[in-house]
């Protein structure tokens, strides 16, 4: 069978390594969609497993250059310059207050928006894999995998009721019969 092992967060890297190896050893064609973990540098994935790394490198929420200049560079530069003179104490306090009240909330909002961009990228990447490869079996090995496909699973299961879904790859009696 053709299996997609989805682990977008990939915290359970030992399980991913061992279960994909086992699936490949059982004769399945195994694709892994995951964030790459340093653990696999020392414990390589099985060579028969096709890995699709979900790395949204460089993708960030758009930022306004004007807002960056007005809210980050100018006030911080000014306060840092003041901090080198006799107003060092008040300037340092003002800089901390600016960071806490203005740029801190902005940074959190940007981080949240960037996380949404990353999520959308991973979702699109996994959906494209599902579309392209028409897998027989989806292993949703972590909460992140269900989260990623939560909006798409109902329609997918309606469209493909024969699609096998599990949360692990193990020695399933049904799968043994199907091989």
């Amino acid at each position: 069978m053709k299996i997609l092992y989805a682990a977008p967060v990939a915290k359970r890297y030992r399980a991913i390594e061992s279960e994909t190896r086992r699936a490949a050893a059982d004769g399945h064609e195994v694709h892994l969609a995951a964030a790459r973990r340093p653990h696999w540098d020392e414990h390589p994935l099985d060579a028969r497993v096709t890995a699709h790394w979900l790395h949204p490198a460089g993708r960030r929420a758009p930022e306004s250059a004007l807002a960056t200049a007005l809210l980050y560079r100018l006030p911080r530069g000014l306060l840092r310059r003041l901090g080198r003179g006799p107003l060092a104490g008040p300037a340092a306090g003002a800089l901390r207050a600016w960071n806490r009240r203005v740029t801190g909330p902005l940074d959190r909002r940007r981080k949240r928006r960037t996380a949404e961009v990353h999520f959308a990228y991973r979702r699109a990447a996994v959906l494209a894999l599902i579309e392209e490869h028409r897998y027989d079996w989806l292993v949703l090995s972590e909460p992140g995998a269900i989260d990623l496909l939560a909006d798409d699973l109902p329609a997918l299961l309606d469209r493909r009721p024969e699609l096998r879904t599990t949360y692990t790859y193990e020695d399933f009696a049904e799968a043994r019969d199907a091989r």
Binding site: P143, I146, L149, A150, D151, L153, P154, L157, D171, A173
Partner: peptide, 30 residues
């Protein structure tokens, strides 16, 4: 236990998908 670190609104969607998914996704293994 699978801890889900997501806001309540997103969790509701995840829970809804999981209710559909779970009954069909737990075959017995040896």
């Amino acid at each position: 236990i699978w801890t889900v670190l997501r806001p309540a609104e997103r969790r509701r969607r995840i829970w809804r998908a999981q209710r559909r998914l779970l009954p069909r996704s737990v075959p017995a293994s040896a």
